[in-house]
Each structure stands twice: as structure tokens, then as C-alpha cells.
């Protein structure tokens, strides 16, 4: 089932010298079973993969394949039914928050009663950082997100894209080394999405966090990621693992014209197509 690592064998791993980097996330034999009205169904079945320091990995698969479930188990939001997850060689415990890990939701989870500034500063505030120290970091985060002039606005006054920028900054201000993202731009229109890709690429290419990014959007995965892990339709199993050797810095519009983008797009498209057909056959 699983293709040899690095589909395009002729291509070097684009971003990270794989052998040298240490493993940040290790998922081993992960399984998740749900009980729905007495019937058990398998959401995730025997998934194993690793994410190395500084890698941007996209977890790609058809809707309902359990990719968000995997991410939530990595984040410790959801108990697992089998297997192991290690972050920096420590087993992930459900309900225990790892301060090195940041998480960005698909759904809007901003606190609507807090202003943009107060939302972004939330993590620092509850960590007990004094107001004066907080103000400087919040102000620079607001600027980095391109939200100057909106610092005092409430989320209801912002567009969907701006809200997701605030959510991103609310997580990034805590300087997580590992970033888990659950289809963070899934609810945005195409244009806003491209702008968010630009923002995220700029940040990531500068700071090189270790990222695990869940998406069902192939174009998005190819634009952002240095590696794509393709999951099968339900139950989610590992199907293929690709390196995306598009040079950086990337531009979200220009990448679409590269030969590598086109080659991988059509290959993965067919592979995904098989999974969609399998879903329908069920």
C-alpha cells in the first residue's frame, strides 16, 4: 500500500536534510474506534508516520477519512483506541496540554467578547505575563497578522479571513515549536485562502516550526507542505507518502505553474479519485 518514502526518488527532500533532523512527532500503529448506537466503526486503522524537526507535513485525504481524528489524538484532545503517539519521545496523554504544541481549529474559536488584541494576548495573559511586557508582543503580532488598526475591534466586526489570522496569531504568539492545524482555512473563499497561504508561508519560511496540517484540498497541501501523507477513505489508513520538492520561498500563485506542482497534482488526484470511488462503493 505505502509507496516508498520520497515518491520522486530523483528529487532531494526539499526542505530538510531528513537523516540529520530529529523526530518531533512519532505516530505508531494508531487506531480509533467509535461506538455509534451500539455499532462499532473504525475511523483510523493502524496509522504510522513520523514528522521531523522543521518539516511541514500535510495530512491529506477524502472527507471522513479520519485525518482530523488523527490530529486531535496527536493534540491529546481525543483518547486513542490503540497505538502510540510520541512528541519529542514523550507519550501524549489525553487532556494534558503540551506547551510546545500549538493548535489551530477549523471552526472559529475566537472569544467574541474579547477584542482582537485581547484574543491574541490570551495565552500570555493567563500565563501571568505582566501587562507591559504583553503589550509589546501583542502589538507586533497584530502587525504581523496585518491587522493594524483593528486591534480594538471585536471579532464580529472582522471578515472570516481576518478572524482566522487572529486565531493563528493567538496560537503563534506562544511560540510553539510544533504546530497542529485542522483545516484552518477550510471555511474561507478561494481568494482569502490564497492570502492566508501567503501569510502562513511567510511565517513558516522564517520560523520553520514543525507543522502537521490537515486538509482535503490538494492544491493547498501542495502549496504549503514539504511532505504530503495521503490517507485512504474510511477507515483511515496510510496510502502514500510524497515529498513536495517545490523550491522555497514559495508564492501561492506561482507554485501552481511549476512542473513539480502539475506532476504531483495529477498523480495524487488519481490516487484520491480511487478513494472517492471506494467511499461511494460502500
Amino acid at each position: 500500500m505505502i509507496a516508498p518514502p520520497g515518491q520522486g526518488l530523483a528529487l532531494a527532500r526539499g526542505d530538510v536534510p531528513a537523516a540529520a533532523a530529529r523526530t518531533r512527532i512519532a505516530v505508531q500503529g494508531l487506531a480509533k474506534r467509535f461506538n455509534a448506537s451500539g455499532r462499532e466503526f473504525v475511523a483510523v486503522d493502524d496509522v504510522s508516520f513520523e514528522v521531523k524537526q522543521g518539516e511541514f507535513v500535510a495530512l491529506l485525504g477524502p472527507s471522513g477519512c479520519g485525518k482530523s481524528t488523527i490530529l486531535n489524538m496527536v493534540a491529546g484532545l481525543l483518547p486513542r483506541s490503540g497505538g502510540r503517539i510520541l512528541i519529542d519521545e514523550d507519550t501524549v496523554e489525553t487532556g494534558k496540554v503540551n506547551p510546545r504544541v500549538g493548535y489551530v481549529f477549523q471552526r472559529d474559536t475566537l472569544f467574541p467578547w474579547r477584542t482582537v488584541e485581547q484574543n491574541i494576548g490570551y495565552g500570555l495573559e493567563i500565563a501571568g505575563l505582566p501587562k507591559t511586557e504583553r503589550a509589546g508582543r501583542v502589538a507586533s503580532a497584530v502587525e504581523k497578522a496585518g491587522l493594524s488598526g483593528f486591534a480594538q475591534s471585536f471579532p464580529r466586526m472582522l471578515s472570516g479571513g481576518m478572524r482566522q489570522r487572529v486565531a493563528l496569531m493567538r496560537t503563534l504568539i506562544l511560540e510553539p515549536e510544533i504546530l497542529l492545524m485542522d483545516e484552518p482555512f477550510g471555511a474561507l473563499d478561494t481568494h482569502t485562502k490564497l492570502e492566508m497561504h501567503k501569510t502562513l508561508l511567510e511565517i513558516w519560511e522564517r520560523e520553520r516550526q514543525t507543522v502537521l496540517f490537515v486538509t482535503h484540498d490538494l492544491g493547498e497541501a501542495l502549496t504549503l507542505a514539504s511532505r504530503i501523507i495521503l490517507l485512504s477513505a474510511r477507515p483511515g489508513r496510510l496510502k502514500e507518502d510524497f515529498d513536495v520538492a517545490i523550491p522555497r520561498p514559495r508564492d501561492p500563485v506561482a507554485v501552481r505553474e511549476t512542473a513539480e506542482f502539475g506532476r504531483l497534482y495529477s498523480h495524487i488526484w488519481h490516487s484520491l479519485g480511487e478513494e472517492f470511488r471506494r467511499t461511494r462503493a460502500d
Binding site: 493534540a75 484532545l77 496540554v97 506547551p99 504544541v101 500549538g102 493548535y103 481549529f105 471552526r107 474559536t109 472569544f111 467578547w113 490570551y122 495565552g123 493567563i126 500565563a127 493567538r170 496560537t171 506562544l174
Partner: peptide, 26 residues
Amino acid sequence: DRDQIAAARLLGASEFTVLRTVVIPS
């Protein structure tokens, strides 16, 4: 909103902080 509670936890909030900064304001 359960996701808001989850978000607060992931940003480092304790049980009591969640009550104070999410549940009560909401």
C-alpha cells in the same frame, strides 16, 4: 462553545481559568 473551551485549554488555561475566562463571560 466546547471548541472555545478546548481552544482555551490548548492555550494553557487550567480548569479554573477556563471557568473564569470562557464559561462565565460566555
